[in-house]
Amino acid sequence: MRAVVAERHGGPEVLTETERPDPRPGPGELLVRLAAAGINYKDVYEREGRAAPRAPFVPGSEGAGTVVATGEDVTGFGPGDRVAWCAAPASYAELVAVPAHAAVRVPDDISDSDAAAVMLQGLTAHYLTTSTYRAAEGETALVHSAAGGLGQHLVRLLARRGARVIGTVSTPGKAAAAEAAGAHHVIVRGAADDLTREVLDRTGGRGVDVVYDGIGKDTFEAGLAALRPRGMFVLVGAASGPVSPLDPQSLAPRGSLFLTRPTLVDHASDPAELAERAADVFGWLREGVLKTTIGGRYGFDEAAQAHADLQSGTTTGKLLLRPGH
């Protein structure tokens, strides 16, 4: 089979398309022919060595495709079933061994591309807005990278619940995407002090009830300063790098703030919970509550370019990797 391999840890240039042995499904696994793989910052962290499988390795953990075989002890799935997942290692490959407990069946009216595009970001937006912090009508949320795939999902779900959303974007050209998703105010990020001041200005000095931050180092302090007393800071990623160590005592004089770093794995490890969240996400897609914006489609031979584009901060929506050209 053809696959994308990181021969060593490093920049996007370490990714190459090559031939690899076909995997075989082990006990409890599905062998799936890939239709599309989602490209995520988790893949970047692995490639760089921050979350490091030993090189060489096949990156990726999210995708959609069709089951071609099953291993022992698999129930509920069979050859020909369309499935999607967001927790299967080595997903940048024509054939992927997917743990059955991590797979969900894709409804007939949801395309493979939409399923691959929505799994990680859609499920993440689901738990962030239902389990981590359930914003109420009249509250205000600050969503960083509001034009990105996860950011647009968050904006849509928060606005649907009646929350006022302040979105940030990296360039003026991305503002329209955040506004179309439902952001009430859009801020083009600049200096940290300016960001805090702009958020406070838009909340009459009160601050926001919750911050969703997938950027990390560059926006962390500004987000803390923009929270109301007893507000919640939700750190969901580190696109700009990890945040500096924080003394928990410092949260008290800032207004008795709450800080959390949740992950999807702790909100979807149970197959029943995963299936329930996925059913909601697919239902929201069907109803138009969520929309997938595909920011780019790349062949395996373009994986390095896809990673470079993701890290450039110039893309909007979801990037997909597909076998072939």
Rank of each mutant, 00 (worst) to 15 (best):
F282Q: 01
L246G: 10
D22W: 11
A180V: 10
A36T: 09
A64K: 04
V98T: 03
A64C: 14
G162L: 12
E7Q: 13
D280K: 14
M1T: 05
S269E: 15
G148K: 03
A306T: 03
L274I: 07
G296L: 02
R254H: 06
L30E: 02
T293F: 08
D218T: 12
Q121K: 14
L200R: 06
P253D: 10
R20F: 06
R164P: 01
D301R: 13
R20Q: 13
E94C: 02
L227T: 03
E94W: 01
A6W: 00
G313W: 06
A222L: 08
D270P: 07
P27Y: 08
P56T: 06
G283D: 01
A252F: 12
A125K: 00
K217Q: 15
G122S: 09
R82C: 06
R206T: 11
S145A: 15
H126K: 05
G182T: 07
I187R: 03
G28K: 02
S256N: 12
F282A: 02
V68D: 07
L31Y: 08
A239I: 07
H101S: 15
G149I: 05
V44I: 11
Q311H: 14
A191C: 11
S240G: 12
V289S: 12
D73G: 06
A100G: 10
G288H: 07
A125S: 11
G182L: 05
E72W: 09
V265M: 14
E139G: 08
L31E: 01
D209A: 06
A90E: 11
V199K: 01
T18R: 15
A52S: 10
R160N: 10
P59F: 01
V265I: 14
G214K: 03
G162F: 08
A252L: 14
G148P: 03
A125Q: 02
A51F: 15
A69T: 04
G237F: 02
Q152K: 13
G138A: 11
